[in-house]
């Protein structure tokens, strides 16, 4: 829709002269509906927001030459809507609730226009102007709201990525990365970086990547795993891949992927045993009482004599 020129500042004048009345009706309009949904804004907070918005709205109307809310003249109003939408998006308001904030201004405004009256032509013109401005503002609000929600989702995804790749120390110099769930490119990348960083921070020369909890592996994921192993080797650490399911073993061969010099073990326990051996350690059973073997095992810190 093309923006329309504003006629003789009639709308600006009406809003300016009846600001208090419009505000009261507008707030009433919103609290009536809000009661049903139990949204989390108290009335004084809402009144303050409406008042501030109405002031900016009146000021922009005074200066504006057109209904084009995207233009520079409406910057103050846009800024306010932007801030409000973001704040409400963060509080969990829905997009229709946010649009309603602007839409609900229609009834008090149109009511007032009808009351004031005047000739049919100018009434129709002013009503149309008001409709156009409010609709555009509602659209703008929804867009900002959408964007704010997307930002929140993106941030949460990022946080989840970090949470879902824990690198744990099994023993001095031995790390494990238990992977669970589907591995996509972004996750494998984050995993790779956090594993390599932990190798550096802890000075660990062996890392076990356990994929027991990974249902399938595609070519891309397998390549990412291989890259991780190669990068770790460049840094001076060795990776052991454990917990490969039978189907995954079949897939790897069918895809013609070469796992090269990578050490693979059936279980995390097997991999751990290899890692201990490589670092010159072994697991021995200890006796707790005379003639009785305990079920517990201890890890010998020194190589066997």
């Amino acid at each position: 829709m093309s923006a329309q020129g504003l006629k003789k500042g009639r709308l600006a004048g009406i809003v300016g002269n009846h600001e208090a009345e419009i505000l009261a009706n507008w707030v009433g309009e919103q609290t009536a509906v809000k009661g049903r949904r139990g949204a989390s804004l108290n009335e004084s907070e809402l009144r303050a927001q409406c008042e501030a918005f109405l002031r900016a709205f009146r000021e922009s109307l005074n200066g504006a030459a057109s209904t084009d809310v995207e233009s520079n003249e409406w910057r103050a109003v846009r800024g306010m809507l932007d801030e409000l939408s973001r704040a409400r998006a963060a509080k969990g308001f829905s997009s229709s609730e946010m649009a309603f904030f602007v839409m609900s201004l229609k009834r008090p405004l149109f009511g007032l226009l009808r009351e004031i009256g005047g000739d049919a032509q100018s009434l129709a013109d002013t009503t149309w102007e008001a409709t156009e401005i409010l609709d555009r503002m509602a659209l703008f609000t929804t867009e900002v709201y959408q964007k704010a929600r997307e930002e929140i989702i993106a941030r949460q995804q990022e946080e989840m990525l970090e949470l879902s790749t824990p690198v744990v120390t099994l023993w001095k110099g031995i790390l494990a990365l238990p992977m669970i769930g589907t591995l996509d490119s972004a996750r494998t990348q984050t995993m790779m970086e956090s594993l390599l960083q932990t190798i550096l921070d802890t000075g660990s020369s062996i890392a076990i990547i356990d994929i027991t909890g990974v249902p399938t592996v595609d070519t891309l994921t397998a390549q990412h795993l291989l890259k991780t192993v190669t990068a770790a080797r460049l840094m001076g650490a060795e990776c052991i891949l454990s917990g490969i399911r039978p189907q995954i073993a079949q897939t790897i061969v069918h895809l013609g992927l070469d796992l090269g010099g990578m050490i693979t073990k059936a279980s995390l326990a097997d991999a751990f045993a290899v890692a201990l051996e490589r670092t010159g350690r072994t697991i021995v059973r200890v006796r707790t009482g005379p003639g009785r073997e305990s079920t517990a095992t201890a890890i010998g810190m020194d190589p066997p004599a």
Binding site: E193, L196, K227, T230, A231, A232, R233, L234, M235, G236
Partner: peptide, 20 residues
Amino acid sequence: VVVGMRPAVAITLVELGLAL
């Protein structure tokens, strides 16, 4: 023996196709 390669350098080298 090459020692102390940083993680970001290692990742980049692998991506570059240089596994040494």
